[in-house]
């Protein structure tokens, strides 16, 4: 009975993970299929679709734009979230902390399409274009709660007595932060930045109304491409993203021991 129960549980988890990861695995498989239509029966193995990406400069420059937007949004989000998480963990009563954390997590509950639309309409109400910074703004406000959550988790394990130890040994505010607080929280800060960067990099809806041909992000270029046709090249682009995200997940776990969940 016990064994059967365990086997049933294992089978359930296996099917669930197949369901969750299946579409991704299928996209990766498709990117190696030489057939020109999508989807198509498998005809062999080729890397030609990956080579094809290199002949499409709009994908490469869009990836560059996405990287810059994601880096700026993640940096802004992490700095702002760090200060908030630090203040909440250090001093807040638990009820005040809960209320503040809920308020600061509110961007998660606003549809990303709506964030994008709202920033567009604010810009047009002021009679200005949204431009590059409108894009960064939308991404920053959306990823900030993720940074906040990771930093709050990191700070929950932080013994604030080490700051007092530093102060009692003669360290001022600044040197205490530089020597003790920031180095100890570095894993959470790096992980927060990485998660925010990736979430921003792969996000389509936030950019939907905020890009111009000069500031098209990679998901926007993919979106436009898929509107006209679908072929395994787009699967190759997606596979590269999946690979990068997977590598980052593993690196964070291996070297920083940080996950979205403890």
């Amino acid at each position: 009975m016990r064994f059967l129960g365990k086997a049933a549980g294992g089978l359930y988890l296996l099917l669930l993970y197949l369901f969750v990861a299946g579409p991704l695995l299928f996209v990766i498989a498709t990117s190696f299929n030489p057939a020109t239509s999508f989807p198509a029966p498998f005809e062999g193995l080729t890397l030609s679709w990956y080579a094809a990406i290199l002949r499409r400069p709009e994908f490469l420059s869009a990836a560059g734009t996405s990287a810059v937007v994601a880096a700026l949004a993640a940096a802004l989000a992490v700095v702002v979230a760090f200060l908030a998480a630090y203040a909440l963990s250090r001093n807040g009563s638990s009820s005040a902390r809960g209320a503040m954390a809920t308020l600061l997590a509110s961007p998660l509950l606003v549809p990303q399409v709506v964030i994008s639309l709202a920033i567009l309409q604010l810009a047009s109400a002021w009679g200005v274009g949204t431009g590059f910074w409108g894009l960064v703004a939308a991404h920053a406000v959306y990823v900030m709660p993720f940074a906040l959550r990771l930093l709050l988790t990191g700070l929950a394990r932080f013994d604030f007595a080490v700051e007092e130890a530093s102060r009692s040994l003669g360290g001022g505010w600044l040197s205490t932060w530089r020597e003790v607080t920031l180095p100890l929280l570095r894993p959470s800060i790096v992980a927060g930045f990485t998660f925010c960067f990736i979430l921003s990099f792969v996000n389509l809806p936030l950019s939907l109304f905020l890009t111009s041909p000069d500031t098209a992000t990679l998901p926007i270029v993919m979106f436009a491409y898929i509107e006209s046709r679908i072929d395994p090249m787009i699967a190759a682009v997606a596979s590269v993203i999946v690979l990068a995200a997977g590598t980052a997940t593993i690196l964070l776990d291996r070297f920083l021991h940080v996950r979205l969940v403890d």
Binding site: D159, A161, V162, E164, A165, S166, R167, S168, L169, G170, G171, G172, E179, V180, P183, L184
Partner: peptide, 20 residues
């Protein structure tokens, strides 16, 4: 006086050693 100017050595209950 702020703590860093008191020249008082403090041993914490949790030790508060800098783990890094």
């Amino acid at each position: 006086a702020p703590p860093q100017q008191r020249d008082i050595g403090l041993v914490f209950q949790s030790y508060a050693l800098f783990p890094h």
